[in-house]
Design a protein around this nucleic acid. Sequence first.
DNA 1: AAAGACACCTGTCCGC
DNA 2: TGCGGACAGGTGTCTT
Length: 270
Amino acid sequence: MPELPEVEVSRLGISPHIEGKLITQVRVHDARLRWPVPETVQRVSGQRLEAVTRRAKYLLLKTAVGTLLLHLGMSGKLRVVPNTTSLKKHDHIEIEFEDGQVLRLNDPRRFGALLFCADDVSSHELLARLGPEPLTEAFTADYLFAASRGRKQAIKTFIMDNHVVVGVGNIYANEALFKAGINPKRQAGQVSRARYQKLVPLIKQTLQDAIAQGGTTLRDFTNVDGSPGYFAQQLMVYGRGGKRCMVCQATLKEIRLGQRSTVYCTRCQR
DNA sequence: AAAGACACCTGTCCGC
DNA sequence: TGCGGACAGGTGTCTT
């Protein structure tokens, strides 16, 4: 479900309801996520939620005693509801606040995660080696060009590598490469500086547009308030294999790169 | 070190 | 209508 825009939309959706509030209880209904939810998550009970931030696709819920790391995996969804709302299938976690509102994590496929970190969260093993945030000034064409030198992997898998840059998932990698006119199979190390100068702003723009549209709704993604995201209407290639290119009318090609479905226009993308 | 395959799950959709 | 198989937004881990 979530790429960076969907995670950010989720963050923006939940934070006004829970930031600054006292956590009264953490209820673990089903600890079977990507890793078993540890007992240490209980340490935030009685703590004030100081901030809800994001690093890559991890949501960070900060308290004075430590930080919860929350990942949505492929199918995780967050909602804030009154504690009288009945539980649904695959509701794994509830974090209850002083005003009776509850943050619920629902995750059918269980690739999501909830962990607790008592120390500096940025040096947590899951976060320490991540690349820059795509929407910050640290992510530049010069950086990406330099990082790509000598790399033989396809540019699509390269920009989806979290050690290179975080938050570019399968949808937006397909979309950004289409807009930049770059063939996703092209070796990262043989893409010119000029083309990275085109690509990097398009990655940023694609992600920002998707956030502004409330994310991409495919299948079942909805935002925290239950509304869908509208970015799906703007997808140029993702999910459109075999259909016409919206620019040149050629038939879009669908292949697999790194076991991920990859759609591109053989005429527009070289 | 880098690149690729695999694993972890459930739900949905498609073809027969 | 049922059944098998393929596929789905991610990413840590293992194997080449």
